[in-house]
Amino acid sequence: MSSVAKTTALPPALPDHAGLGRWGRIRESLIHWILFTCGVLSVLTTVGIVLVLIIESIPFFAHVSLWEFLTSTNWAPTVRPQHFGALPLINGTALVAIGSGILALPIGLGTAVYLSEYATPWTRAIIKPMLEILAGIPSVVYGYFAIIFFSPIIRWVFPGTKVFNAASACLVVSVMVLPMVISLSEDVLRGVPRALRDAAYALGANKFDVTTRVVVPAAMSGIMASFLLAISRAIGETMAVTLAAGANPRMTLNPLESIQTMTAAIVQIASGDTPANSPEYRTIFAVGLALFVMTLGINIAAQWILARTRQKYE
């Protein structure tokens, strides 16, 4: 106790362990190591996952050439003869990511601009919690929501569409990424210095001019980063697209067709009864690695863009 009493009596800005008793010092270093372990844990987990992906993929690529994996348009790992062309899966993932992006990005940006520039405190107080609820809905709920709500609408508008189709997956994923696009974009829009708006108003600009010609351009790189993170999230989305998009790996740009995404293919193999250590089983690591590289690349690009914005405005 005496050491505690001593520390409280000291001025706050003392070097690390000065003035502490022996037990105080041990406690300090214990806390230090516990916190350090917490930090290291996340690093180890990341490294471990990446290592597993790589190590498990190596035997797969010994069996199937990387060239075939990346260029063949036939994905049939579980039927004989086997085919391991991941392109249809990449096609499916890209279709869902781009389709949901086309829907979510303009709506998200519009909402963000509204919230940051036009909304009254009252409307903000309603919309913001709604978005948080949207962000908190489990992805499996979104998945069957796509099947029982979006899919029938699409089938009504375009008769002949299958129950499982890329369009309903695009719609539902766009709803899922919307809260992220909005909150990240709104943050950067609100971060545009007030001085910049004032300067524009002082030049005789009206609100629309200030918003479209000053605020949005000033926040552009942050907005782009939020777009990229949303795309990356859409690429990695699993449950909803597995439920909504179907299980038909195919090369198509038609969103009304049934497709299979990379994530859905992993679910299919991992939850099926493929023998472990068979090439078809190892596809989950190869596809997983490909997914990881894609999302990592996009996330790095987003971080890089964000870092550049921060430099510009302190």
Partner: peptide, 15 residues
């Protein structure tokens, strides 16, 4: 505001 221009303390060029 076009007739009465203003220059601020912090220079705020648009990006």
């Amino acid at each position: 505001r076009k007739r009465v221009g203003m220059v601020f303390q912090k220079s705020v060029p648009f990006p």
